[in-house]
Design a protein around this nucleic acid. Structure first.
Lengths: 215, 215, 215, 215
DNA sequence: GATGAATGAGTCTTCATTCAT
DNA sequence: AATGAATGAAGACTCATTCAT
C-alpha cells in the first residue's frame, strides 16, 4: 500500500520545518535584523518567494521560530521531571542535568540568545516566554527545592532565588555556546558542558544541604 | 592661567562620552542593527552629521561603546579585589558581591547583552572580550577559589568550573535586567538582585566547603 | 446527433467568457495594474494556472476584455440606428437614448473607464478604440444631425462638435457610474440616469432647432 | 539687501511643488500603479530617497497631488464667477467658458483622469472630490440656471440635470486631452477645444431658452 | 565645527508567470 | 485540462554616509 502523497506534497509539508530550522540557525548566528530573508530561504534550499508562501513576513517567521522551538523542547523536558523518586537533592541533580544537556545539545539552545535579544522589540514574545517558559521551568525546580526544604534535607533558603542559582547558569551555557563558544574563544572549562553542569548542580545541592554560609 | 574654556569647548569635550552613552542605551534596548545612527545622534542631542565627526562609522561606534564600557567598569572592579584579607570564602562573597552589584547598577550591565549578541559579527570584539574581560574576571575568582582549596577551606573541586558557578549567574543578571526585566516581566526573585547575589554566593561557597555532593 | 456535451466541456466553453467578465469587473473597479491575475482567476472560479491556459498574459487578457466588450455592445447598438424613420430630431433623441441606456445598464459601461485609463499604455487599444468605436459612433450621430441641418430642421452648426455635445455626456455617465457613483457619492441628479439622458437630448435637440445663441 | 536664504534652502522649498508636478504628469500619463516612485523622483530631478523626504509614501504623494491641484485651480475659477452681471444665459456662457478653458489648458486637467481612476481605491479622495469639487462646481452652474428659470429667460427644466448637461462635456474634454487626445488620435472636432466649448454652451443655453423639446 | 538635505546601495515584499503533478 | 507550489524580476521604502552651506 503505497503512500499517495506526491513528491510535491511531501516537500510542501516539510517546508515550514526546513524554513524554521534555517531561520533559527541564521537568526542565532547573525541576529534577526542582520539576517536577510533571502539568506534564510537559500539555507532552506528555496527561493525568496517561497519563504513568503509560508510566513507572511520576516517578523512572523521570527515569532514562529521562537514559539516552535520553545514549546517543543522546553515542554518536552518538563514532562519527564514529574516521574522519578528518591531524595530531592538527587532528583534535582539528575533531572536538571538530563533536561539541560538535551537542550544544550539541540539547536533549541540558540533560542535563548534570540529571546534575550529580541524580547524588547516583540512584546508578544516577551509575554509568551515569561508565561510559557520561564514560569513553568522555575516552578519545576522550585517545587523540587521546596520538597527538600520540607523534608529537612535542605536548609531554609529563599526558594525562588535558589532555583535561579540552579537555572541561570544553564541558560548562560546556551548563550555561551552561541556566542564566545561559537568563535572558538570559549572558556576551556565549558568544552565539556556536561561536566560543568554536573559539578554545578552538585555544588548548589551541597550548598543547600546545610543552609547557606553567612555572608 | 587660561582656565576659561568656552561652553562650546566644554560641550565638545563631552561629546564622545554623550554619544557613547546614547549609543549604549539604544544598542542595548533595540539591538545594533535595529538602531539608526540618527537615533543615537538625537538621543545625544546632536545632529546626524556630528556623530560622524566623532566616529567614522556605526560599526566603529559599536566597537568604541563596547571597549569603553568594558575597560572602564570591569577593570575598575577587578583592581580592588587584589587588596583585602581573611578566609577565601568570606573574601569571595564580599568581593564578588560588591563588584557585580556595582556593575549591575550601572549602564555597563547592558554591554553583556550587546557582546553576547554581536560577538559573532565582530571578531575583534570577540577577541577583546575574551582576553580583556573574561580571562581576567575568571582568573580573579579562580585564584580566590584556588586559595581556599590550598588552605583546605574548600573541597578539591574543578576550579575553573567552580568559578563559572560563581560568575555565570552574575552575567545572567545583567542580561535579565535588559531583557525580561526591562519589560516588567522579570522573575520576582530578582526584584532585589543584591539579595539574590548574596544568597547565591553563600550557596556556592557553602557548597564548596564540603566538596560537591556525588551525582 | 451527439449533443451530449459533458459538463466539463460546457464549463470549458464558458471559461473565456467567465474570465473576461471577471477581468472586466476587477479592472474597472481597481485598475489594470492594481488587479492581480490571481484575483481574476478566483472571481471566475478557476485557479491561477487556468487563466494562463486561456490568455497568455495579463496584458493579453486586458486586450481581450476591451475588444470583446467594445465590439459586442457598441457595434450592436449602432446597427439598429440605421433603420427607423421620422424627423431627425425625434430619431436622434429616441435612438441615442435607447442605445446608451442599454450600454449604461450593462457591464460594458465600465470599458470606457478602462479605455480612458489604459489607452496611453497600450497603443493598439488606442487605435482600435478610435477606429472601431469612436468613429462609427460619432459618425452615426453626425449623420443624423447632418440630415436635420440639410432639411432645415436644425440650424447650421458645426456638425462634429454638435455630435460631441450629444455624446460626451453619455460617456461621462458611464465613467461616473464606475467612479463616484460606485462610491455612493454620485450626483443625485444621476440616480435615474435615463431621466438625465432624456432631458439632455431634449435640451441639445431643442438647442439645435434654433441655431446656437450668439456667444 | 540680499535675500539670506541659501541655494539649498531655495531648492528645498521648491521640491514639494516640483515633485507634485512630476507626479501629476506621470500618474496621469501611465496611471498611479504603473508609475514607479523612482520615475517621479527622476522627472523631478532628484533621487528616490529625496522623494521620501517630502512624502512618506507613494500613496501620500498621490493624495497630495490630487488635493493640491484640485484646491488650487478649481477653487480659483469658482471665485471669479460670483462677480459679473447681465442675463443668466450670457453669464453662463462666458463664465463657464473662461473657467474651463483655463482648466483645460493647465496640467490640472489631468487630475480628473486621476480622480476617475483612483477614486475607488482611495475613499478619502472620493469624499474630498465630491465635497470640495463636484458640489461647489455644480452648485455654481445650478445657481446660474436657477436664476434664468426664475427670470423667465429659461424654461422650467430640472436644474441639476441641466447643470450636468453643461458640465459633463467639460470634464470629458479634460479626460480626452489625456487619453485619445494625447495619442494623436483625438476627434478632429476637439483640436480647438475652445471652439467646442463655445458652441456647446451656446447649444445648451439656446436649448434652455424655450424649454426642452418633447421626447 | 555643526547641520541636515541629498544620495543610492541594500532589503523586504509582491506578483506575473511557469511547470511538475 | 486543471492545479497551485515555486520562482525571481521588479518595485516600495530605509538608512548609513556624504558634503554644501
Amino acid at each position: 500500500m503505497k503512500s499517495i502523497v506526491s513528491t510535491r506534497q511531501r516537500r510542501k509539508d516539510a517546508r515550514p520545518q526546513e524554513l524554521l530550522d534555517a531561520a533559527l540557525s541564521l537568526f542565532v548566528e547573525k541576529g534577526f535584523a542582520a539576517t536577510k530573508a533571502e539568506e534564510v530561504a537559500a539555507l532552506a534550499g528555496v527561493s525568496k518567494g517561497t519563504l513568503y508562501l509560508y510566513y507572511p513576513s520576516k517578523e512572523d517567521l521570527l515569532r514562529a521560530v521562537i514559539r516552535h522551538n520553545l514549546s517543543t523542547e522546553i515542554a518536552a523536558g518538563a514532562q519527564e521531571l514529574a516521574r522519578m523518586g528518591g531524595p530531592a537533592g538527587d532528583r534535582l541533580q539528575r533531572v536538571v542535568a538530563d533536561w539541560w544537556e538535551r537542550i544544550l545539545a539541540s539547536p533549541t539552545s540558540g533560542v535563548f540568545k534570540l529571546v534575550i535579544t529580541e524580547l524588547r522589540n516583540f512584546p508578544e514574545i516577551a509575554r509568551f516566554y515569561a508565561e510559557e517558559v520561564v514560569m513553568p521551568g522555575t516552578q519545576l525546580v522550585e517545587s523540587l527545592i521546596r520538597e527538600g526544604v520540607a523534608s529537612g534535607e535542605f536548609a531554609d533558603v529563599n526558594v525562588q532565588q535558589a532555583a535561579l542559582s540552579v537555572l541561570l547558569p544553564m541558560v548562560m551555557l546556551c548563550l555561551h555556546k552561541h556566542s564566545l563558544g561559537a568563535c572558538g574563544l570559549g572558556d576551556p572549562a565549558l568544552e565539556q558542558p556536561e561536566l560543568f553542569i554536573r559539578q554545578h548542580l552538585a555544588l548548589v545541592v551541597n550548598g543547600l544541604r546545610r543552609g547557606p554560609a553567612r555572608l
